[in-house]
């Protein structure tokens, strides 16, 4: 698992380097490779940040699909917020609901919680083992099952493939 950790963190640092320098010179790429390799071995030799990620082509495809879904949800969230804020009657119906997740990996739960925070009308307050407590600006379903279907499901089925 250590190799996978180092490999993924190497990729992340390398992409960051490429974006910041924005050049394909041989010297620049070589220096970037050296620095990324050194940093990922030193920093991520002992961490287990990425140890639960799946490195299959399907997982990569789902990663990009996840980003697209997430961006669409982010734009929808903003249209929703704008509508609520600017309408004179302010149609809100807030409440805190509980949802269940089936995800096991810590990283996947972190991504799930962050995504929920940035999607329409929902905001993660507290997270325990498999339950998330979510402040919902317009409560549609108070029970655990209905709330889970409405909030978590669309992200969970994508994250399940990325983190086995």
């Amino acid at each position: 698992m250590k190799i996978k950790n180092i490999f993924v963190s190497f990729l992340v640092i390398m992409i960051g380097w490429m974006l910041l320098t924005w050049s394909l010179d041989v010297s620049s790429v070589l220096i970037g490779t050296g620095i990324s390799l050194a940093l990922s071995v030193v920093l991520c030799g002992s961490c287990n940040l990425f140890s639960e990620i799946n490195l299959t082509p399907k997982a990569f495809a789902y990663f990009f699909w996840y980003i697209i879904v997430f961006l669409i949800e982010l734009v929808k969230a903003n249209i929703d917020v704008t509508r609520r804020v600017l309408s004179p009657s302010m149609p809100i119906n807030p409440g805190i609901v509980k949802v269940q997740t089936t995800l096991k990996s810590k990283m996947a739960r972190l991504i799930l919680a962050n995504s929920i925070t940035l999607t329409p009308g929902t905001f993660t307050i507290e997270i325990t083992d498999d339950a998330l407590y979510i402040h919902w600006i317009d409560v549609e379903a108070e029970d655990v099952k209905g709330a889970t279907n409405a909030i978590v499901r669309k992200f969970e089925k994508l994250l399940e493939v990325m983190y086995g």
């Binding site: 903003n78 917020v81 804020v85 809100i92 807030p94 940035l118 329409p120 402040h135």
Partner: peptide
């Protein structure tokens, strides 16, 4: 300014300021 309590204020603040 318009939302009634802290929780709703944080919600609108986060989403709109991120995008």
């Amino acid at each position: 300014l318009r939302m009634p309590d802290v929780y709703n204020r944080v919600q609108t603040g986060t989403k709109a300021s991120t995008l």
